[in-house]
Design a protein around this nucleic acid. Sequence first.
DNA 1: CATTTATGTTTTGTATACAAAAACCAATTT
DNA 2: AAATTGGTTTTTGTATACAAAACATAAATG
Lengths: 227, 227
Amino acid sequence: MEELKLNMDAFLPLRDVVFNTLRDAILKGELEPGERLMEIHLANKLGVSRTPIREAIRMLENEGLAVTVPRKGAQVAKMTEKDLEDVLEIRDALDGLAVECACSRMTEDDFKALEHAMEVFLDATKHGEVRAIVEADEEFHNVIYKSTKNPKLMNIVANIKEQMYRYRYEYIKGNNDFSHIVDEHEKILDGLRRQDVKFVKEIMHTHLDNQISGVKDLIRRQNGQEK
Amino acid sequence: MEELKLNMDAFLPLRDVVFNTLRDAILKGELEPGERLMEIHLANKLGVSRTPIREAIRMLENEGLAVTVPRKGAQVAKMTEKDLEDVLEIRDALDGLAVECACSRMTEDDFKALEHAMEVFLDATKHGEVRAIVEADEEFHNVIYKSTKNPKLMNIVANIKEQMYRYRYEYIKGNNDFSHIVDEHEKILDGLRRQDVKFVKEIMHTHLDNQISGVKDLIRRQNGQEK
DNA sequence: CATTTATGTTTTGTATACAAAAACCAATTT
DNA sequence: AAATTGGTTTTTGTATACAAAACATAAATG
């Protein structure tokens, strides 16, 4: 079916290599929501034994990317519309916190990184590579989260974003006007410079809201078409 | 050293039983921060093989209760003061969100559950059982989180609380006047009834703040005394 | 004496073997 | 035709064996 090749150059335990491989495959949509994750199958495909596969599954599970039923095995986690709403509610609150922290803690280096991320995003939109665009947008927001100087916050948000990443990815695919996103990015940078917490929070909220309906449609279609 | 007995009555895979056992031991302080989690050792102690132990460790890891270095093994996660501050920053934001959601979504059943939790807490303080007190306080707040009708939020908060639970536990031990906590609980309930978001947020914030310095002292002492 | 080198032990990493549960499927019964 | 039964296959759960890396310690070398 799919490729699923291991990236062996890393000096990591196989469980981590397998985890990264499966995670990527899920995020990119190569492994679809609901698809079973069978151990021997994956083990053969990746050329390793079941042991590291199992450990990787345990890791995916706690990232919310896989769900396992005892004695029945794991499958790629599905998301309902309600799940998405719940996630966004949280994401919004954490974005708010992030903006507050960032406004008071951003250094000049952080601003430079943010500007750079903005350029990279602009570039990506010009070439139209979906993957590159999504990653560049991710990076822009990650710079902001990094600026909070709160690594735990970064972790949690990374985790939450991961859960909807694949849907977002599909959504971006169907889009080709990114000018309003570029616009929002500029406003966010500007607001952060002026330490205008309220202003930035609002833009971020809009930015997030803009994605919702599209992704929701996607989920509805996907969950509708199957059994 | 410690007891560490498995609770076999459950029809769960061993990895889950082991996970619960280790988690409890860590939260109760039977396994101390920094203590090594050696596979054969634990396997012998619990009377199982290394396989379920490893999977349980992977789960603990992603709960933030254990940290593993490749080829060196896992240990119970330590927390620095900075970690605690970071966690509280997040907790505070999520408490805020929870209050907002709860205020608009609480049902009569939720209120009843909250009142009940309050009584249980009051009872627990009278008997002075540390464990019971901590659990009752947990339960009170859990009812509020449940009222948000956002299970993802519940999960995240549960996870975050878990990371500082053991410290809180130690802290409560050294305390014996719980009247102000009872007081705060009453105010929170009252505020929720009146749907006064701002008021409840503030009490919750204080409630949280009250615990900080004590727990911080504890961490400072603990991290000071070793190597 | 300090520093390396050799060596044995401990501990994690990975593969594999076997047991037990679940899923499947066809045949039989109602 | 629907439901039940029995047996076969697939798949997960668990234990164990072996390999490789880290660690400790003692001997050897400068």
